[in-house]
Design a protein around this nucleic acid. Structure first.
Ligand SMILES: [Zn+2]
Ligand SMILES: [Zn+2]
Ligand SMILES: [Zn+2]
Ligand SMILES: [Zn+2]
Lengths: 165, 165
DNA sequence: TATGGTTACGTTATAATATAACACTATGTC
DNA sequence: GACATAGTGTTATATTATAACGTAACCATA
């Protein structure tokens, strides 16, 4: 089975996010099963926190949320960072470098680089998946062997442009 | 006068860096004069430290270098960050988000977004200037108003590929 | 050349982000 | 159960960045 990926720019569209969320969690669960990896409760907890929205969250925001849900235990940074590391490694979340923050992946399992549109008004982030040929071509012509690419475009989404103008 | 920009990928080519450095400093000086801005000695100091190579440096590396050159005074972080802020604002340097580091700009004054190839072997960073159409087109089709773009490609440069075998 | 406004610099303290190191616990295998 | 391994918990600390406030340099005008 190959579940359908979220369409590009979904973060900026009105959509049934409950469903969006459920679908992505199911995909993550399945993907871990297929890879024989353990989506432990900590890891799932962190993933669910990120799946709750299309907004990126800092590691310490996630930490705070964890500690709010379970005020008896006192969770420390390494726990969060380790869960994030696992999720990043499996392509279930992405790191937004220009925000020092993390966001759930809209197409779990795609191992290639993603591109992000970041609205500085509503803080939503949409994930694209464009084969940005021009750039990779230039890299190729210089004999540069690409490993990983970070593409983060900041601006104002269509919805927010309406509300301001 | 419009001085010639460094060709794309210069960081990965053998070149007369003394000259490269001199040229970029001259351009920076002129540009500040034209804009009626003060390239103070602190700012110039920080710029010169970055111009010394095509490798990005962390703010604290720059700080350490400043303090090494003048062991009598004890310079503190805000001084460095303020100089960096000025240089960033004028497009004389760039911030490499994925490294939390700074690098001198190869085309001072160009206000548009740049793209970087980052060699994880030799730590050199080459600045490109490609109109990466595919991506901006996608952004446009979503009605997203682009503000600033971060493009950072990590990999291994041609030279380093030879040396590893 | 005084005077006042502005910009830049210096200093101290602290915030925000991230990791090292090591002990303990759960999980799967024999 | 004994063992190896992977995951978690805990403490301390490293790294990156900024807030707040005072001082000095610069620049215009009188
Ligand atoms: Zn959604
Ligand atoms: Zn928006
Ligand atoms: Zn050079
Ligand atoms: Zn290299």
């Amino acid at each position: 089975m190959s579940p359908k990926a979220q369409p590009p720019g979904i973060a900026f569209r009105k959509h049934d996010h409950r469903r969006c969320q459920r679908q992505l969690l199911a995909e993550a669960t399945q993907l871990c099963a297929e890879r024989n990896l353990r989506l432990t409760s900590r890891r799932r907890q962190v993933l669910e926190i990120l799946l709750a929205s299309h907004q990126p969250m800092g590691a310490y925001d996630i930490l705070a949320k964890l500690n709010r849900t379970a005020p008896n235990e006192q969770i420390a940074p390494p726990i969060v960072y380790r869960a994030l590391e696992f999720l990043l490694g499996e392509g279930l979340i992405h790191r937004i470098e220009s925000l020092n923050a993390f966001i759930s992946c809209a197409h779990p399992g795609h191992r290639c680089g993603a591109q992000f549109l970041i609205c500085r008004d509503c803080d939503q982030v949409a994930e694209l998946e464009v084969s940005d040929n021009g750039l990779l071509a230039e890299a190729g012509s210089l004999g540069f062997a690409v490993d990983h690419s970070v593409v983060e475009i900041t601006g104002v989404c269509a919805e927010c442009q309406k509300h301001v103008g």
